[in-house]
Structures are given as C-alpha cells and as structure tokens.
C-alpha cells in the first residue's frame, strides 16, 4: 500500500518536473515505461546511424572525384560517430551496447527503414544526403529539447554535424542538375526513388502512431510525426524546385490558406512491407552488420585479453 502511494507520488513529481522543462538525468527516478520507451527510441536511432553507414559507404570506393571521396568518407564517419553518441546515451539507462547490438541482430530492435533501399547510382548519394539527412535534421532539432538529458545533449552534438551532411548531398544534386542530360536524369531518378521513403521516415500519421501520445506527454518526443513531416515537405519542395527537380507527387500543391504544401497519400502498405522485412535490402543490411560483428569477435577478445594481462602484470613483476 505504502509502496504504491510513493510510486504515485514519484510519478507525479516526475511529470511535474518534465512539465517544467527540467531535464531528467540518469540517476533520477523515472517510470519504468519511460526508461523502456527511451531505450527503444534511442537504440533505434543509434542503429539507424550505424546501418545508415552501408548505403552511403557503398559509394566511398566509387566516388567520382577525390574531393567527393574525401567528403563522403568524412560524412559516413560522422554517422558512425552519431551511433557512438547514441549508444552511450542509451547505456546511461542501464543497458549495454552488446545487449543493444544483440537486439538489433535478433530483430527485436529496429532501425530506420529507409536504409533498406539500395543506393544504385551516384545520384543516390546526393539524394540521401539531401533528403534523408534533411529529414533527420528536422526530427533531431526537435529532439534537442527532449526531456532526457543525455539524449538531448547527444542531439545537440549531432545536429552540429548534420547541416554539413545535408549541404554535401544537396550540392551533389545541384552539380548533377547543372550537368549533362544523363546527369539530370540520374538526379531525377534518385529523387523519384527516395522521395516517398523520406516522407515515411517520420512514421505513421499521428492518429495511428502507437507510442506518440505518451511520448509527447513525457516530452520524449516534442513534435508530432505529421508536423515534422510537413516541415520537411515545405523545405524540400522549394529546394527541389530551385535546382529544377520535379517532386514525384501529382497531388503536391501549395495551400495558401494553410501556408503549407498539401501532398499526396503515402503508401503505407509499402511502408509496412519494408518495415516488416521485405524491402529490397533488409536481409543484406542486417547480414552485413552481423558478419562484421562476428568477424570482429576475435579482435574484441584479443583486446580484452591484452588489457587483462596488463592489469595482472604489475603484481607478477613485483
């Protein structure tokens, strides 16, 4: 009885702290569901950064100029760094990176479905940087104010690097659009393939979003899926038009009254198909991560053994 009372008291105190925009820190009391919800969201975000290395990393060896090669290497390296910040943030919630990776490998934990699409041409590297990183920025900027301190601080660090990612992608697209016809076709084709998956990155409509209401109340999420998606569309449409690209949506139209673009219906069946494992590259993405992790096992073991020996040595010598 008494325990129950104090739990209720804790939850109230917790909520009023969140309402007052105070950050929740690792040592603070938090509802178990808040913790689990955060672990789910942060680890999904971390895995997305890491799996996201693959479609872009595929083009490091084939980048068309040395400058593009160096920029792409730096960009993909940043994404690995983002993964690291986020795993570290998740670990403050009492879970290890090994456990998180295990959940990724068993399918218990997801990553952004957009990375299950292939990067077929060089223009895809432009489209990914421009659209996928734009979408990530829109989402991550809103998460700089998330209620959990370590997550919010990770977002601040990450957002600083993202604008370079977006710019390099857009710059690739712009260069293609100023080039030969085959380059403009390549750019348009990439936009055609990446546009809708980018819109899907924001998740289901607010009415259908499973975790949204509670996440908003706890201020884990700060803005709704549909709000964020709208902001992305408004930005991206103008950027597309500025360089002569056509957004592949016949229903796209400026709505004077709303002050926003109206856009066509998203194909949620396609979304479900890819999320549930039947996108073009789901199996390859996961298999790639699993095999790199397994092939690296002996290295991690060697490191641990070496460090254990170093700790033991002084005693033996003495």
């Amino acid at each position: 009885m008494k325990d129950n009372m104090s739990l209720v008291g804790n939850e109230e105190k917790f909520q009023s702290k969140v309402d007052a925009e105070e950050k929740v820190e690792p040592k603070d009391w938090m509802p178990e569901k808040y913790r689990q919800n955060l672990i789910r969201q942060i680890s999904q975000h971390a895995h997305s950064e890491v799996i996201g290395e693959q479609p872009e990393g595929n083009w490091i060896s084939r980048a068309p100029t040395l400058e593009r090669k160096a920029i792409l290497m730096a960009k993909v390296q940043d994404e690995a760094g983002h993964g690291l910040y986020l795993y570290a943030a998740a670990e403050t919630l009492g879970i290890t990176r090994d456990e998180l990776i295990d959940r990724l490998h068993t399918g218990a934990s997801k990553y952004a479905s957009i990375f299950n699409y292939p990067s077929l041409t060089w223009a895809d590297i432009g489209a990914i940087g421009w659209l996928v990183d734009s979408a990530a920025i829109v989402n991550q900027v809103s998460l700089q104010n998330t209620s959990y301190g370590p997550y919010a601080r990770a977002m601040v660090k990450i957002c600083k690097e993202e604008s370079f990612h977006q710019r390099q992608g857009y710059n690739i697209m712009m260069t293609l659009m100023q080039g030969a016809e085959l380059q403009r076709d390549m750019a348009q084709d990439a936009l055609n393939r990446w546009w809708w998956p980018s819109l899907m990155m924001f998740g289901p409509h607010d009415a259908e979003s499973a975790h949204s209401a509670q996440s908003m109340k706890w201020k884990i999420k700060r803005r709704s899926n549909d709000e964020l998606r709208q902001q992305f569309v408004d930005q991206a449409v103008q950027q597309a038009q500025a360089i002569g690209l056509v957004v592949p949506d016949p229903d796209l139209v400026w709505n004077e009254q709303r002050g926003h673009y109206d856009f066509g219906a998203i194909d949620w069946e396609e979304f479900q198909r890819v999320v549930s494992g039947n996108g073009p590259c789901n199996r390859q993405r996961l298999a790639h991560h699993v095999s790199a992790h397994q092939e690296g096992a002996w290295v991690r073991e060697a490191m641990a053994a070496y460090e254990a020996k170093r700790r033991a040595v002084p005693a033996e010598v003495a």
Binding site: V50, E53, M73, G83, H288, H293, G296, A297, V299, R300
Partner: peptide, 9 residues
C-alpha cells in the same frame, strides 16, 4: 567503413 570489429574502429 561499416566492417570494423567495433564502432570506434
């Protein structure tokens, strides 16, 4: 890239 034994690498 994306194939190292762990993320730091």
């Amino acid at each position: 890239m994306s194939r190292a034994p762990f993320l730091e690498e």
